[in-house]
């Protein structure tokens, strides 16, 4: 019941954002109906485009899961972007350098991506757990380091001869298989969905998940109830970073088949926002991630079919975030707070 009410409220917020977006589009002298129709056409107009939407959603979804794990535990991992880059880069290294049979190669590359993501958050995690140092700042700053560091390694150590600065392509044995002939959409989508379902049950049904969620909602109570707070903080941040690394690994192994500069700019941040809009609920994060993916993929057709810039989508996305989060704020004045909602779905 509450689920439907809140979904209804979100829809109103969404509608409001679209209306404001229309006004802006009119303001720049374009036709909003054309814009939205093109957007839908670009996102769903053909099987290929639907696959494209799912393709765009996948990294946002997995990055969103990384953020969910942290947020539910009361930790703010804003460094998913950096973990994604490290994971993507590490997967590429394993992918192109080790000739192995596929049943070893693909899992190994994934695991190394996961480890790279976890390693990248290990220092902020340690300082948060041991000294209560603010993880928001440390994880954000490491984003820049990760993007520049992977770029440096790519250019100066592992660059494929000639052309753009990118690593050599990974071997076929490490590639995540695609789902259809006509799209790069791959099994990464199912990894994202499986993670969402897994996390849903983890937080609702397991002892460890219950303790994590309790820590997120009242850390002093969790401590009192016997949760080893420091160990738990460290562990949950590592898990969050690991999933962030996996998001990058999936992009490398499933889509790009190499690591390059401009690998996946913004996907980590989109994941964080998707999780925030979904109140850190993994299942709802799937929906918000799909929505962001739809905007991204739909916007590509705007460039080709209209005279509008794709950037209008950035504006639209910002509007949606504003309206939906305003709605969440207003919703808090009622009886269903964000904290309570996590028990309702």
């Amino acid at each position: 019941m509450r689920f439907f009410r809140s979904t209804f409220e979100q829809s109103i917020a969404l509608l409001l954002a679209l209306v404001i977006g229309s006004l802006i589009i009119v303001g720049i002298g374009e036709n909003p109906i054309v814009a939205y129709a093109t957007l839908l056409d670009g996102a769903f107009g053909s099987p290929q485009r639907i696959a494209g939407t799912l393709l765009q959603s996948t990294p946002i979804m997995i990055a969103g899961m990384a953020a969910c794990v942290a947020f539910r535990s009361g930790l703010f991992n804003i460094g998913v972007e950096g973990q994604l880059y490290m994971g993507g880069f590490a997967a590429a290294l394993i992918g192109f350098s080790l000739p192995l049979p596929w049943f070893l190669h693909l899992p190994l590359a994934m695991i190394v991506a996961v480890i790279a993501g976890a390693a990248w958050i290990a220092v902020p995690a340690f300082f948060r757990a041991r000294y209560n140092a603010n993880e928001v700042v440390s994880t954000i700053l490491l984003n820049y380091v990760a993007v520049l560091l992977t770029s440096y390694f790519t250019i100066f150590l592992f660059k494929r001869p000639g052309g753009w600065s990118e690593t050599p392509p990974i071997l076929e044995s490490s590639m995540l298989p695609t789902l259809f002939e006509f799209s790069r959409l791959n099994y990464g989508l199912f990894i994202g969905l499986a993670l969402a379902v897994g996390l849903h049950f983890y937080f609702l049904r397991t002892v460890s998940g219950f303790e994590s969620g309790t820590m997120g909602s009242n850390q002093r109570y969790a401590e009192y109830g016997g949760v080893n707070i420091r160990a738990k903080i460290f562990r949950m941040m590592l898990v969050s970073g690991a999933i962030g690394g996996l998001a990058g690994g999936v992009e490398t192994l499933g889509v790009h088949h190499r690591f390059m500069e401009g690998f996946a700019p913004g996907f980590g941040f989109d994941g964080v926002i998707a999780a925030l809009l979904a109140n850190a609920n993994p299942l709802l994060t799937v929906i918000t991630a799909l929505f962001f993916g739809m905007l991204r993929s739909g916007s590509l057709l705007l460039e080709v079919d209209t005279t509008m810039s794709r950037e209008i989508i950035t504006v639209l996305q910002a509007l949606i975030i504003l309206c939906v989060s305003a709605q969440v704020r207003i919703g808090r004045r009622g009886d269903a707070t964000a904290g309570e909602r996590r028990w309702k779905y």
């Binding site: 309790t214 109570y221 904290g339």
Partner: peptide, 13 residues
């Protein structure tokens, strides 16, 4: 409220 309960969690937990 600070130590004794998670106010948002159900009574049973």
């Amino acid at each position: 409220m600070e130590r004794g309960v998670d106010r948002d969690a159900p009574i049973r937990l």
